[in-house]
Design a protein around this nucleic acid. Structure first.
Length: 545
RNA sequence: GUUUCGGUAGCUCAGUUGGAUAGAGCAACGGCCUUCUAAGCCGUCGGUCGGGGGUUCGAAUCCCUCCCGGAACGCCA
């Protein structure tokens, strides 16, 4: 039973009677639980319309509300005019069999029905390793996709592979240079080349495979294909180790193969959004909110970056998504208006694309900012991080912070095995329950996870656990609609806290068989929800620690 | 200079479609293990919400202005 909905419906009916339906009803969980389990400010909102004191309105409403008395212990009016609902926690006992009957289903919503979102994230160039910024994007995109899916959205995760532009030529040249070096020749890395260790390793591998073949033969295409394929494979492997996967890897080169670029140019020209000037082709993005028009074909005939990107978004649009979400680094914020402008030109719709920008990450170790990776000499890579502290803490820490905060990532904290470290705190809660079930089996307790009625689950600690279990669907709804995965990590912390508190307060495996059976049913539900929530942010729920 | 993100407790951060005495975690301080994982629990302390104006019954939240820090401002990608 959804109590919030219950209250909202009752208020709705009342407003209908009073013919003041235009007012939006808000029912929230108060910050301070002494203000009830649910609360509404509806009386204050009505004060203007009805021209009466909010406190008086609130009292009237409470009298007239048609609510099941068994569900609430009391409904009170507080100072300015809040109406506070105090729930009889025993009604939440019904959650236990509900969750245990189908654990992974609890919290699943239908609010995304009919929606098909495409989330593009990471989209790193295959010219090196993934760095810390990509890692944040990967964690954000993947967590968001999982949460939206849980909320009933159809979600496609997509990675755009820039394998077409200058940077790929530079990659080939860089590999070539390393190749020559590996064969003992003097050769500098080109000016815009890539200096990473991974390029050196690739070159050495090529030498071991084909020897000195490309000393006289032109190896450009070979180096290019070899480099892109190898580096893409590395990206995919790194992401897999980070518990991140994609449904679609879309290559820029396929835009050329399928003539999508010329097609897109034609569409833009036909619609009259282009003009020629100074030998270049311009797009009238300023007509759609951009600060100025942009060149899409340079005077030398080559394309600027934005053109294939527009064509790519055209391809995505043609697949019929109800929304496109791009997760980009905050350093691209200036790029967003022109892309949105182009999408509006093509689709005729304004808000098909949402861009979520993520801000920079500062990595701390031994209390000091770390800027460079030991191995590559460049910025810190995802594989550095995973090697150093593992995937789970990084996933959790990224999920904890809203995207637009400039966050600190404390590697020392990530490694701590104590309650200072929120990941361990949560995983430990899960492992503690798992341990209880192992003990229960060993000691031969008679488990029954399907029991539906409870007579021994009493007290504040139980009430809190049940209250938090009840919040799960609401947490998912808010996380999905506002696209804020940190709502889920906050939830995980709350539930872990309630569990640890209960655990410390009560010896679960006592001599009273009935009590044990009921407690274990409750804990089984808690464990299931903890696991489900951790999975939403890509973190493992450990059985043993 | 323009654009953009941020400035909330000692630290890291929630809260920002205006609402209750501004929240959490960690740190600090004080308690709790002959019992299922003390990797834990219980309690206390802690804030002129960057500054200053304004709108409002009510502002961390909206408007104006200033200060501080990050980032972006290409016929680069």
């Amino acid at each position: 039973m959804d109590i919030k909905l219950l209250i909202m419906n009752a208020l709705q009916d009342l407003l209908k009677e009073k013919q003041v339906e235009a007012i939006e009803i808000e029912v929230e969980v108060p910050n301070d639980s002494s203000n009830g389990d649910f609360s509404t400010n509806i009386a204050m909102k009505l004060a203007r319309v009805l021209r009466k004191a909010p406190f008086v309105i609130a009292e009237e409403l409470v009298h007239e509300l048609a609510l099941d008395e068994n569900v609430f212990t009391s409904i009170e009016v507080a100072k300015p005019g809040f109406i506070n609902f105090y729930v009889n926690k025993e009604v939440y006992l019904g959650l236990i069999p509900k969750i245990n009957a189908n654990p992974s289903d609890y919290g699943s919503l239908t609010i995304g029905e009919g929606e098909h979102y495409n989330i593009e994230f990471v989209s790193a160039n295959p010219t090196g390793s993934l760095h810390i910024g990509h890692a944040r994007g990967a964690a954000a995109g993947d967590s968001l996709a999982r949460i939206l899916t849980k909320a009933g959205f159809n979600v496609t995760k997509e990675f755009y592979v820039n394998d077409g532009g200058n940077q790929i030529d530079n990659l080939a040249k860089s590999i070539h240079a390393r190749y020559l070096q590996a064969l003992g020749q003097e050769c500098d890395i080109p000016e815009d080349g890539y200096h990473g260790e991974e390029i050196k390793r690739l070159a050495q591998k090529i030498v071991s495979e084909v020897g000195s073949r490309f000393l006289d033969e032109d190896g450009h295409h070979y180096f290019k294909n070899y480099g892109v394929n190898a580096l893409l494979q590395t990206l995919e492997d790194d992401l897999k180790a980070f518990n991140v996967s994609f449904d679609i890897w879309y290559k820029e080169s396929s835009l050329y193969q399928e003539n999508k670029i010329t097609e897109t140019i034609q569409i833009l020209k036909d619609k009259g959004f282009t003009y020629e000037s100074e030998g270049a082709l311009w797009l009238k993005t300023s007509a759609f909110g951009d600060e100025k028009d942009r060149v899409i074909i340079k005077s030398d005939g080559s394309y600027t970056y934005v053109l294939p990107d527009i064509a790519y978004h055209h391809v995505k649009l043609s697949r019929g998504y109800t929304k496109l979400i791009n997760i980009l680094g905050g350093d691209h914020h200036g790029y967003v208006p022109r892309l949105k402008a182009a999408i509006e030109m093509i689709s005729g719709q304004q808000n098909l694309l949402d861009v979520d920008l993520l801000q920079m990450v500062k990595v701390l170790k031994d209390g000091q900012e770390v800027k460079m990776s030991k191995r590559s000499g460049k910025s810190i890579t995802l594989s550095d991080l995973i090697e150093e502290v593992g995937s789970d803490p990084i996933r959790y820490f990224f999920a904890m912070r809203s995207l637009n905060t400039h966050m600190d990532l404390d590697l020392d904290l990530a490694l701590k095995e104590s309650n200072e470290n929120p990941v361990f705190y949560a995983q430990y809660a899960h492992a503690r329950i798992a341990s209880l079930f192992r003990q229960a089996t060993v000691k031969g307790y008679d488990l029954d996870l399907s029991i539906k009625t409870f007579s021994t689950l009493k007290g504040d600690k139980v009430a809190l656990l049940l209250t938090v279990l009840n919040e799960y669907p609401h947490a998912i709804e808010e996380a999905a609609l506002k696209r804020i995965p940190h709502k889920i990590t906050h939830y995980i912390h709350r539930l872990s806290q309630a569990l640890h508190s209960y655990y410390a307060d009560e010896i679960i495996l006592s001599d009273d068989a009935l009590k044990v059976r009921e407690r274990l049913a409750l804990l089984h539900a808690v464990k299931a929800v903890l696991k489900d929530a951790l999975t939403l942010v890509g973190v493992e729920a450990k059985e043993k620690m």
